[in-house]
C-alpha cells in the first residue's frame, strides 16, 4: 500500500500535466483540452455538413454521404498516420503531434457531428418546417430559427457522447508520441517498473471517471429533454 501511495505522490502532477511547464503540456489536461478543442472546432463544419446531408438537392447530399461513408470506413489511426507522415510534406511546416492529432480529431468529429445534426433535423416533425415556411420564412430562415434550435437541443446528449468518443480517441496519440495521458502512464510505468497493474488501473480509472461522468450527463440531458418535449399532437 505504501508503494502505491508513494507512486501517486510522486507522479500525480506528471500524470496531470506532463512536463509542463518545463516542456509542452501533456497528461490528463492535454487529453481534456485536445478533446474539447476538437469538438468545438468541429461544430461549424459538422453543422454545415449535416445541413448538406439533408439537402433535397442530391448533388449536395450524395457527395457528403459519400465522404461520411469513407471517413467512417477507415480507422482513425490510419488517418492519423496519413496526417503525421504527409502533413509536413504537404504544408511544408513541421506539424507537432498535438497539432496533427487536433486536425485529425476535427475531421473525424465533423463527420460524426454531421450525422448527429442530420439525424436531429430528420427527427423533427415535418409540420415544424411546414408551418415556418407557411409563414413566409425561407428555407434558410426556417432552418436557423425553427429547425436547428430544436434539432441541436435534441442532439445535445449525442454531442456529449461524441465528446466521450473524442476523449477516448485522443489515446491514439500515444502511437505518434503525443504526451497524452496514456503515454504519460506508460512513461511512469517504465520509470517505476514494478507497479504496472497499479499504474494501468489508475489510467483506466481516470478515463472511467471522466467518460462515465460525461455519459451520465448526456443521459440526464436526454431525460430532461423528454420531459420538456411538447406532447405529440
Amino acid at each position: 500500500m505504501n508503494a502505491f501511495l508513494e507512486l501517486i505522490d510522486t507522479y500525480w502532477l506528471y500524470f496531470l500535466v506532463g512536463q509542463y511547464p518545463d516542456g509542452p503540456l501533456g497528461g490528463l489536461v492535454l487529453t481534456v483540452l485536445l478533446s474539447g478543442a476538437a469538438l468545438v472546432l468541429a461544430m461549424p463544419l459538422g453543422l454545415m455538413l449535416g445541413i448538406a446531408r439533408v439537402s433535397p438537392y442530391r448533388a449536395v447530399s450524395l457527395p457528403v454521404a459519400g465522404v461520411v461513408q469513407v471517413v467512417r470506413a477507415v480507422p482513425l489511426l490510419l488517418v492519423l498516420f496519413w496526417a503525421y507522415f504527409f502533413l509536413p510534406a504537404v504544408t511544408g511546416v513541421k506539424t507537432s503531434q498535438a497539432a496533427t492529432m487536433l486536425i485529425v480529431l476535427v475531421v473525424f468529429d465533423s463527420v460524426y457531428l454531421a450525422e448527429i445534426v442530420a439525424a436531429g433535423i430528420r427527427a423533427l416533425p415535418p409540420g415544424q418546417l411546414e408551418s415556418a415556411r407557411s409563414l413566409g420564412l425561407s428555407y434558410g430562415q426556417a432552418l436557423r430559427h425553427v429547425v436547428l434550435p430544436q434539432s441541436l437541443a435534441n442532439g445535445l446528449p449525442s454531442i456529449v457522447n461524441q465528446l466521450v468518443s473524442t476523449i477516448k480517441a485522443t489515446s491514439l496519440g500515444y502511437i505518434i508520441g503525443l504526451s497524452e495521458v496514456s503515454f504519460i502512464a506508460s512513461q511512469i510505468n517504465t520509470l517505476v517498473f514494478t507497479q504496472s497493474v497499479q499504474v494501468y488501473l489508475i489510467l483506466a480509472l481516470t478515463y472511467f471517471m471522466l467518460c462515465f461522468g460525461l455519459s451520465r450527463l448526456a443521459f440526464l440531458l436526454e431525460r430532461r429533454l423528454q420531459r420538456r418535449a411538447v406532447q405529440p399532437n
Binding site: I167, K168, Y174, Y207, F208
Partner: peptide, 19 residues
Amino acid sequence: ESIRNVPLLAHLLFWYFAF
C-alpha cells in the same frame, strides 16, 4: 460501463503490460 468508458488503447496496455 467499466469497459466502455476506457479507450481500447488503455485496455491493450493493461492486458499486455499489467495483466
